[in-house]
Structures are given as structure tokens and as C-alpha cells.
Simulated scan of single mutants.
Amino acid sequence: MNAHTLALVLAGAVCHALWNIVAKRAAGGTLFVWLFGCVSVAAAAPVALVAWQLHPQAFDRWMWLAVLASALVHVIYLLVLQKGYRAGDFAVVYPMARGTGPLLAVLGAVVLLGELPSALGWLGVALVLAGVFMTAGGATGAAGGDAQRRRRGVLWGALTGVCIAGYTVIDGWAVKSLGMAPVLFYATGLAFRTVLLAPWAMHQRGALRGQWRQHRAAIVLVGVLSPLAYCLVLFAVQSAPLSYVAPVREMSMLIGTLVGARLLKESLKPSQVLGAALMLLGVAGLALA
């Protein structure tokens, strides 16, 4: 991987960590998700239009089904993630979500598709599990209300990981099996997510305006940084193998844990840092397996 590609991947990891930190600080709900989704659609649309002009692609019914399924799971993922950020600490929820997602995706491939990981893949699974237990151990080792908050963070982080695994499997099916162009698939999914939540948002226009006034800067930042993080990785994959890009991208896990805890003034136990590092190594092993 050359220096230019490495810079793209690291920039994508930073963008991913930053938008999650901003979303945690905003502590918004469904309306926040819908509003930053609208910004994301506006930001991604020009890129998707250029991609379609360069490589036009007609969607068949299976492609539309994949887009709709991915959009639905992404909506659930974003709502669960926001609930997790309101219920637990960022330094617990974020690494739990980022670590358990790839782990569950691999286990789902084993159970549903009959795929068998290599020895390195199984080592990655073991390291992610160890990291999860380290993070959960930090939660149970706390006292009083802090312990309860950390346990909620572990639970919601794990549920977020389930959603990540779900859309990872769907997205992989769409891009690899159906041959959908990644940028077009992503942008269309963004539009579908916004449409799915639109009726609910329109029934709360007063609250919607209040949410915009209160969190305008956060909405714009998350709405721009989220698709930007994805596009940076796509550009990197064009010049380097995915097996190299994926583990470097997971640096967002450590960046988010360390920087997020500091910016949000959360207590950070050594076990949480070690747990995030183990999950990072495990995800790298899964990517290289």
C-alpha cells in the first residue's frame, strides 16, 4: 500500500470516528437520524451521478430488493446506535459495535453460507471475542450507576454489531453476487433510508425544526463525514487490495475509543483500551484471512 492510499484509508478512519463522536455528543434520536440522512443524500448524489454516467447500470428486481433490505437494516442500525449513545459511554459502545460487527458477519457466513475461515481467521475470531470480554469486564468491574451504564453500553454496542453484521452480509451479496456498483448501491440505499423515515418525520414537523435549530452543526457534520468516510475507502480500494485496506480502516476503533473518551470527558479504563486493541487485531486477522 503506497503512502497516498494509506492516507486515504486513515482519513476515512478519522472521518468515521469523528462522525460517531459528533453523533454521541448530539445524543439525537430518530429525527436527528433523518435530518443527517438528508444531508448525506445531498452530499452523495453528485458522486453517484458521476459514477452512473461513467458506468450506467440498470437495476433488476433482486438489486432493488437488496437496496431496500440494506436500507431497512441501516435504519435500524442508526436508531440502535443512537439509543446506545444515549444509554452508554462512547468508549464502550463504539468499539463494541465495531468489533462485534465483523465477528458476527464471519460467524453468519459460517452458519448460513458454509464458509470456513482459515487458521488466521479463527485467530481473528478469538481475538475479537477476547476484546469483547475485556470491554465487558471493564463494564462489570465498575461500581454503582457507572457499572449499570457500562453494561448498557456493552448491550447496545453488541446490538449495533448485530445490525452491522446484517447489512455487511446484504451489501456483500449486492456487490459481489449481484454485481451492483458500490457507489450507486450506497447512494440509492441512502435515499431509501430517508424515504423510510420520512412519513414519521413529517408528522413531527415542529420537533423537526427544533432538532435542526439545536443540532444544525452536528447534523451537517455527520451527514457529510459519514458518506465521505465511505467514499475515501472506496477510492483506496481502487489502488490497493481490500485485504490491506480493511484492517487499516479499523484504526477508527482505537481513534474513536481514545479521542472520543477524551473529548466527551468519559472515564477510560485500561481494560477498555486493551479490549479495543484486541478487537482491532482480531478484525485485521479476519480481513487478512
Rank of each mutant, 00 (worst) to 15 (best):
Gly260Trp: 07
Ala43Thr: 11
Cys38Met: 04
Ala71Trp: 01
Leu225Glu: 10
Arg213Gly: 11
Arg150Trp: 11
Val259Phe: 06
Thr188Arg: 06
Ala87Asp: 14
Leu18His: 00
Leu155Trp: 03
Gly29His: 05
Pro95Glu: 13
Met134Val: 09
Ala17Pro: 02
Ala158Ser: 10
Pro199Met: 07
Trp200Leu: 12
Thr194Ala: 14
Tyr230Asn: 02
Gly210Pro: 07
Tyr77Ile: 04
Leu35Ser: 03
Ala126Arg: 03
Gln214Thr: 15
Trp173Leu: 08
Ala277Gln: 08
Ala158Arg: 03
Gly137Ser: 04
Trp52Thr: 07
Phe185His: 05
Gly210Cys: 13
Gly137Cys: 05
Ala229Val: 15
Trp173Thr: 08
Leu208His: 01
Gly37Trp: 00
Thr100Pro: 05
Ala130Cys: 12
Gly157Thr: 11
Ala71Ile: 07
Val73Asp: 00
Asn20Trp: 06
Ile21Cys: 05
Val259Met: 09
Gly206Ala: 08
Gly28Glu: 02
Val39Pro: 02
Asn2Ala: 08
Val106Thr: 15
Pro241Phe: 11
Leu225Gly: 04
Trp19Asn: 01
Leu208Ile: 02
Gln214Met: 15
Val169Cys: 06
Ala277Arg: 12
Tyr186Ala: 14
Ala236His: 03
Leu268Val: 10
Met253Ala: 09
Ile21Val: 09
Ala97Glu: 03
Gly101Asp: 03
Leu31Arg: 00
Leu184Arg: 01
Arg193Leu: 11
Arg249Ile: 08
Pro227His: 08
Val233Gly: 02
Ala136Pro: 02
Lys24Leu: 08
Ala147Gln: 15
Ala240Lys: 01
Thr257Cys: 10
Met253Cys: 06
Gly285Tyr: 03
Leu228Phe: 13
Ala109Arg: 10
Ser177Ala: 15
Phe192Gln: 02
Thr160Ala: 11
Gly153Thr: 04
Val248Leu: 14
Val169Pro: 03
Leu35Pro: 01
Leu197Met: 09
Thr140Arg: 08
Phe133Thr: 12
Lys176Pro: 01
Gly189Pro: 05
Met251Ser: 11
Leu155Arg: 03
Ala207Gln: 15
Gly37Met: 01
Leu288Gly: 00
Ala126Ile: 11
Tyr230Lys: 05
Ala201Ile: 01
Gly145Lys: 10
Asp171Cys: 11
